[in-house]
């Protein structure tokens, strides 16, 4: 199992797209069992179908990882025009069985990422677990909190207005709103009434957490 932070996945895709139509390559470094760093390397082959890293840059990357307390966990590269599976050349050049080989395919409009372990020319695929970014911990706390999970439109707005009516100007109302029409409508209405939406974050269950300052 390869555990990777969501933002690293985003960086790999972005690197692949920025090099296309050439293949992009690089290292993934981990700490505490989670890949948390993407080290973009130069593809000295400058080819759309294969890649090689610059040995000097490889040593530099390994050194700086060590200095940061990170360990190289995987090699990644992009397939601009083909599927996310190792090519014959990829298998032949996979020299380190301790590393995972991550391939991002940019063939389709939404990229695909797969990870492989390649030992003695034998390829086995490896599961990737994407670790979502931790929620930003906000320093603002709500003076009044309303959990409007399961409350549809327009009663969620009615209850929001009732909550505001009991608050002083400048106080903060914390709201939990369902995804869909509630998150699409309630913030718009409170903004129209002059209140200020300070933050809006989606929770794991799809509902939204908002902080709103009363006008």
């Amino acid at each position: 199992m390869l555990r990777v932070k969501q933002e690293i996945i985003d960086e790999i895709v972005e690197h692949g797209r920025s090099e296309a139509p050439l293949e992009a390559c690089g290292y993934l470094a981990e700490k505490d069992g989670v890949v948390c760093k993407c080290i973009a390397m130069k593809n000295i082959d400058a080819s759309p179908v294969h890649y090689s890293m610059d040995p000097a840059q490889q040593f530099g990357a390994i050194r700086s990882c060590r200095a940061e307390g990170l360990a190289i966990r995987a090699v990644y590269h992009s397939h601009p025009e083909t599927a996310a599976h190792p090519s014959a050349e990829d298998i032949k050049l996979a020299y380190d069985p301790a590393l995972s080989y991550v391939i991002v395919s940019l063939e389709e409009s939404s990229p695909t990422i797969n990870s492989f372990i390649i030992k003695n020319d034998k390829v086995s695929s490896e599961q990737i677990e994407i670790i979502r970014a931790e929620k930003m911990t906000t320093t603002i706390t709500a003076d009044v909190f309303q959990n409007l999970r399961g409350i549809g439109c327009p009663m969620n707005l009615v209850k929001t207005k009732v909550a505001f009516s009991k608050m002083q100007s400048g106080q903060i109302l914390g709201l939990i709103l369902d995804n869909g029409p509630p998150i699409n409508n309630v913030p718009r209405s409170v903004i129209r009434e002059g209140h200020e939406v300070l933050s809006q974050e989606q929770l794991d269950d799809g509902a939204w957490s908002l902080l709103i300052r009363k006008a």
């Binding site: 327009p154 009663m155 707005l157 009615v158 209850k159 207005k161 009732v162 505001f164 009516s165 129209r192 009434e193």
Partner: peptide
């Protein structure tokens, strides 16, 4: 303190910016 029933009964008034809870 509006009851749940009152909030629903008068919701279309409360939603009006110019009427509202007050």
């Amino acid at each position: 303190d509006f009851t749940e029933e009152q909030l629903e009964r008068y919701s279309r008034h409360i939603l009006l910016d110019d009427v509202g809870v007050d």
